[in-house]
Design a protein around this nucleic acid. Structure first.
Lengths: 295, 295
DNA sequence: CAGCGGCTTGTAAGTTTGCTACAAAGTGAT
DNA sequence: ATCACTTTGTAGCAAACTTACAAGCCGCTG
């Protein structure tokens, strides 16, 4: 899996390109989708340059020939045009807006996938698996993630809490123990109340896992910093993308903790899922148990 | 944008393949990543068949020659191996588990992107923009989505609520009016309490937007059904993927409603974002206002 | 400002790669 | 058992990509 997507690389190495290579870059950036099915000769024609220039262009941006360039471009385009490229505008139609937001979301997830620290993840899983109690805290969009985690983790038989307001969060930190896993979620990693709360949890000896967007104060304060680096979203229309990546990371943590358990926990979950689906349908408990027997 | 991803198509058209074409399919499915950089001759070698067979294989699964096949495969692989292919297993290492969950999440988002009904989306946006009050309801994972929506939509100056328990939801439905937009979120679309609540909202004349996973009872009951079709997740380890797609759809709705507004709402949001970031840092309100003046 | 050196770009030839026509082998039915 | 049909491989061809080389442009210096 090659690390930085082509279009990103193209942007960054744009100044170091020669004049006619630049013409090629312009064509590619103008409409990457259209370039994908093009043959070398067609692209040369479209950019108004000779064929070897195309090859040199491909090499210049770190591809191994035109073949490689085309494949990498196709992959980049499949994920979506990076958000840095396309900004949502008022005159965009429905289809365009939908595309842009999906592209942005998918690209961002891909970015996180490439930048996730697996070792930190392992440490976090170990800490969560060893804990007797887990607390998730976050505010705003990150609060949503905390609540989502609270729905997932109790499945393993470990009591979980996700206090929503700052006072309750502080209280949870104050009553934490050395076997508490304290998961603090903050994309900016600078929210003072979260930082204060984390300090208390640390004092109490809890293991603090900090899910944050970069090398932030929260990362500094955490025993195990989990950097979930979303793409920049300076644009005002751009939705908060960090949640999505954080949710996926929580999914990963939950799944990996589950994988560490043996079959009994698994069986519990299976039963739970089945009962839940019956509850949805409004059947009575008796009926559920009956169904379970049949299964 | 060609509609069904290659690997999906390959799976579905697998029975109709000839014997030696099937050998090719096996090689491709065994490790799609490895096939991407291969040349036609190499793939023929790897599958133990002749070169023309590869070409015929490509045509058989709906590609226009080997070239096209390679590009489409590259795109498919970029998004990740579809979940139907790869299932999370206990013996998977960290890297593998992470890959699989990200792949699954991204593939699923891509799937929703391809299957979203733009016309329904437009209707939903129109209804939301015209409403004087918006209620979001959901339970479990969908409840998280409802709460997320509640954080986003008040920005437009329309009062929003996202009652969390079934009684409160029922109450909200009972007090809704013809200008209420009632957004019900349920992936299964069969949760009885949600359906009951929606019926009440309909009786009261509210416009019901149903975000659901297919042609479910909820879709039937809604004025505007928004089908958000995630991939099947029969596997027990697989995390609930529907939330992610639903969140993105909520993002899209929020963004599009915002785009309908004129500059004033925009300015409000800009100011709000700036103040919020100051609040995070723990600065006082005076300082915030001061900063705003400087901006 | 003319001449020179280096870099940039295009021309042309070469090599690889993918495609197609055709023939051989296999398979099933009568 | 033979025939018709489907499937697979061989061989040649056309197109695409790459490389070597020469022409042109630009800036520098005398």
């Amino acid at each position: 899996m090659s690390n930085p997507p082509v279009l990103e690389r193209l942007n960054s190495s744009l100044p170091s390109l020669r004049r006619s290579e630049r013409k090629v870059a312009d064509v590619v950036l103008a409409d990457p989708h259209a370039v994908v099915p093009m043959t070398l000769a067609e692209l040369a024609e479209a950019a108004g340059v000779s064929q070897p220039t195309i090859v040199r262009f491909a090499n210049a941006i770190g591809c191994d020939g035109f073949h490689d360039f085309r494949i990498q471009l196709a992959q980049s385009v499949a994920l979506g045009i990076p958000a840095t490229q396309s900004v949502i505008e008022a005159q965009d139609g429905t289809a365009t807006t939908v595309s842009k937001i999906f592209d942005f979301s998918i690209t961002s997830l891909d970015h996180v996938r490439r930048h996730l620290d697996l070792a930190a993840l392992d440490s976090a899983v170990a800490a969560l698996a060893a804990s007797t109690h887990i607390a998730f805290i976050g505010l705003g969009a990150s609060g949503i993630v905390a609540m989502d985690a609270e729905q997932k983790f109790p499945l393993f038989g470990v009591p979980c809490s996700a206090p929503v307001d700052t006072h309750q969060q502080f209280l949870a930190a104050s009553t934490s123990t050395p076997t508490t896993a304290f998961v603090a979620i903050s994309n900016t990693g600078r929210t003072v109340s979260i930082l204060d709360t984390v300090r208390v949890a640390r004092e109490r000896g809890a293991t603090v896992i900090g899910i944050t967007g970069g090398k932030t104060p929260l990362a500094e304060l955490s025993n195990i910093p989990l950097i979930v680096e979303s793409l920049d979203n300076t644009d005002i229309y751009t939705p908060t993308i960090s949640r999505l990546a954080q949710l996926v990371v929580v999914d990963i943590l939950a799944t990996m903790v589950l994988l560490r358990r043996d079959g009994t926990a698994l069986e519990d979950i299976r039963t739970m899922k089945s009962r839940l689906s019956h509850m949805r349908s409004g059947l009575h408990h008796e009926a559920v148990l009956d169904t379970d027997r049949r299964t």
